[in-house]
Design a protein around this nucleic acid. Structure first.
Lengths: 226, 226
DNA sequence: CCGGATCCTGATGAGGTCCTGAAGACACGC
DNA sequence: GCGTGTCTTCAGGACCTCATCAGGATCCGG
């Protein structure tokens, strides 16, 4: 299956690049735009499998208008970016069965998870499963299994685990983890430490350590002995 | 894969030259600037894969302002240089998932390691692994393996080993090692000796000597029989 | 073979980093 | 509203890392 194509329309450059970069690192093909100009031509040329739209765009055409335009031409699923205080009720009329939304400020891990879920449902992505030793992380299904035993993880733990697992064998600093998993601004290393601690407790109840501390640098995930 | 391009913006000439020189010796293409003037043109012409920015620059445009500008044009990862006592809290909203920071005074080995890690994550660098005999040094994963056995090294030991391994077959004076690994000005040979000693103890637990003393000159790293 | 220089390495204490239990804040479903 | 589960903050202590020191070993020119 070739790489899925994703169209991103978001006016704030920092957010747009953050999203586009994260998606590209995950192997998707991305076309990013600041607004909905020339949308029809873009869609015809790029043929996206999924669209990620900010519902609040400057100028006349907001995400809803774009969604309507897209719906006229294809049935691709749409992932809306909405403000925290803007209730998703307004999505009602636009969100068809396959759609979903993510609130801003965007947690990249959350966005990646929902992106994969939508693509998978649309049949444009095989199950996105990451394995580290005897641990199996299925982000599409939000399911984690270690040595045959399913684990109950909270949402935050799942995002954190997903990030670590997909970057297994790589040292990730606490800043990187914070910005990716929490979208945070103020750097509080302890926040990461606490959740790593919780994650370890659950993971290590069924096997040896998988998340290793690299003193002064961050954390790495890797199979027990290798 | 062609050499990765790195943009360096740092006002202090000594630091700037140190960084740029170290990067060039590692085979990167470097464009170094004292400030953010003409940044847009520079970026368009040079097309960097990574930017290293001092967060404290004289004049109006500090590293954050530059980061914002860069984000407008691309999604390249950014490595911030920050003061030790200035907590990276102010990376506020500028650090996207892939970014990281290094504190000043800069330890060149540290900076090289993080540079490689970021480029590798961005897919702009293959695994940066150095081999010396049966020793394998993977700086991206902060992992060292000798004859199949993983070794537990401290951060300083890893920096030291990285420097020696990448310059294998070359005699390095203690002064060179001090300035590169520690960034020191006052010359205390014993500091190097102590850490070489510690490194040897761990390395030689699993094989013959790799770090040789050249009396009165320094140290060389080379495979056991050669 | 001697003596001075160089090098090795165990011990130590200070400074930082990390872990984790507990408690307060928050969100959500009923 | 109320209760439950989840998230964040806080605080103390455990742990790790490192520079410094000092005594002994080794090297090398003479």
């Amino acid at each position: 299956m070739p790489a899925a194509r994703i169209l991103v329309v978001e006016d704030e450059p920092a957010i747009r690049d953050g999203i586009a970069g994260a998606l590209r690192r995950e192997g998707f093909r991305v076309c990013d735009r600041a607004d909905g100009g020339e949308l029809e031509a873009t869609v015809d040329a790029f043929r996206p499998d999924l669209a990620i739209l900010d519902v609040m765009l400057p100028g006349g055409r907001d995400g809803f208008a774009l969604a309507r335009t897209l719906r006229d031409r294809s049935d691709l699923p749409i992932l809306f970016l909405t403000a925290r205080d803007a209730p998703p009720a307004r999505l009602q009329g636009f969100a068809v069965g396959g759609d979903d939304y993510v609130i801003k400020p965007v947690l990249l891990e959350e966005l990646l998870a929902r992106t994969r879920a939508l693509l998978r449902r649309a049949g444009r992505l095989r199950a996105s499963v990451v394995e580290v030793g005897d641990l199996i992380v299925d982000e599409g299904a939000a399911a984690v299994v270690r040595g045959g035993t399913p684990l109950e993880l909270t949402r935050t733990e799942l995002r954190l685990l997903g990030y670590l697992a997909r970057n297994r064998g790589r040292v990730l600093s606490k800043l990187q983890i914070l910005t990716q998993v929490w979208g945070y601004d103020d750097y509080d290393p302890n926040l990461v430490e606490v959740h790593v601690s919780a994650l370890r407790r659950k993971l290590e109840a069924h096997g040896p350590r998988l998340i290793f501390t690299v003193h002064g640098q961050g954390y790495v995930m890797r199979p027990a002995r290798a």
